[in-house]
Amino acid sequence: MAAKKTITIKSIFYTAVSFTWIFGLAAIAHIVMVLIEKHNPVIKYDYAWGCAIIGFLTIYMTRWCKRDGWQSFWGVLGGLGLWFAWEYSLMYGGHRMGVTYTFNGSYPEYRIMKWSFMAFLMVFTYLLYQESARCNFIYFLRRKLKLMRGVVATGKIDNYGPRTAFEYIMITWAGYVLLMIAYDDQIFGPESWFCYALFFVSFSVFFYLIYKLLGYDKFGANLRYAIPTVTVLWNDVEILAKWGMLKEPWVHINWKIMSVIIAGFAISTYLIIKDLRRKKEGMIESKDIV
């Protein structure tokens, strides 16, 4: 569990940079997929293989990164690579099985992903009882539901790279499954109470997460915590687009807005790398939580 945090100018700066970087990464990832589909869909499965391999190698590479900041930085990119491969694998599966788009416009790959919710729950159940999991939400559930026989969490963390990659994958997976269940007209539907509840809960939780994020003044923890913060906000972005109230610039290929996002991503990447290169302190110490 994180120690008591104070919000400083420094932590605000770190939050802004981390948030911009993770948000920019998600937006760029989306537009890359859209551009491939538009200009040369033939390469998409080869691209997916490339992403899977590079993602895996990136995660593997983090074993040589001593600091948790670098590990988290590469972990996010590795997780994104694997996530790309997973989405394209579902696209391929949809193609092989002739899965159609839905009448409210959901894509085949996400229709298939929706039914992975039980697989998600199985993995989540494991994490719920995995002592070294450090997710604040899981802590909350462990405490409130009295799930653990012993301490809430224990064990020193050395491998932030794969953990960050896994965190990125799990949170993105959760976001998609939730959205797709919300969009399904045979379960809830885009105009259902569930979709509205998801929108407003995500909106509220986003501010809470931003508040928590402001307490982290190192790029390691800050980058990792920015992942759920951005993903929760992304739920609202997706729902607004589904309701026809927002035109996503990465889907509509609005280059003016995308230029700003790409510039923000480039600057934040520079600032993160500059900061991580400068810092000399070692790994952060993770104490047992009782």
Partner: peptide, 9 residues
């Protein structure tokens, strides 16, 4: 898709 924003893709 009736009721949703259009895309340019």
């Amino acid at each position: 898709i009736v009721g949703q924003s259009e895309e340019s893709v």
